[in-house]
Design a protein around this nucleic acid. Structure first.
Length: 172
DNA sequence: GCCAACGTTGGC
DNA sequence: GCCAACGTTGGC
């Protein structure tokens, strides 16, 4: 039985548009680490603020692109801290409410690239796995940019990665 | 580019 | 606090 404790890391799925910032950009960032700025959804923010722990796993997902899917694995390197772009008038992430209150209403975390996948796991492949049917990402109309991933779902994803390492997705 | 489905806003 | 209108997300 899975027992929740402070040792086992949480697993998160974090969406990004690769045209804006891809997993490969993260790989090439100094220290392979970047701050995950620009999250502007309360539920996603609250996950970072209340639930993110250093050492948590982050599955980096590419959205709004030709082949959406999981591109790489990252790790949470910091606790949540205020996202300063909310207070930057020249940033596309500038936030009116934050400006009015003179305090960022948004948070971010530092994410480190751990390893790219042998190949991107397409959304279509995730959909084809029965064991992932309840995964948040796959639910109709799901748009949340930061989602918790269940331990058993993560295990299935790791198995998919292991298979693709040797055989590619042709084996699926 | 379309559009379904969602989150947010604001009038009442 | 309701809910219609609007804006956004994101697969296709």
């Amino acid at each position: 039985m899975h027992k929740k404790n402070t040792i086992s890391p949480n697993i998160w799925l974090m969406k990004t548009e690769p045209d804006v910032f891809s997993f490969y950009d993260l790989m090439n960032a100094p220290g392979r680490t970047a701050c995950w700025e620009g999250v502007r959804n309360y539920q996603a923010r609250n996950f970072m603020r209340d639930r993110f722990q250093i050492g948590d796993v982050a599955l980096i997902y590419h959205s709004s692109t030709k082949i959406p899917g999981i591109a790489g694995i990252g790790r949470v390197k910091s606790k949540a801290y205020p996202d300063p772009t909310a207070l930057n008038p020249s940033s596309e992430y500038c936030c009116e409410l934050s400006m009015k209150r003179k305090e960022s209403q948004w948070v971010m975390v530092d994410i480190e690239a751990v390893s790219p996948l042998p190949e991107l796991i397409p959304l279509t492949l995730l959909r084809s796995h029965k064991g992932l049917a309840k995964m948040a990402l796959l639910q109709r109309g799901q748009r949340l940019s930061i989602q918790p991933v269940a331990a058993d779902e993560y295990q299935i994803i790791l198995e998919i990665i292991e298979k693709s390492r040797f055989f590619g997705f042709a084996s699926e």
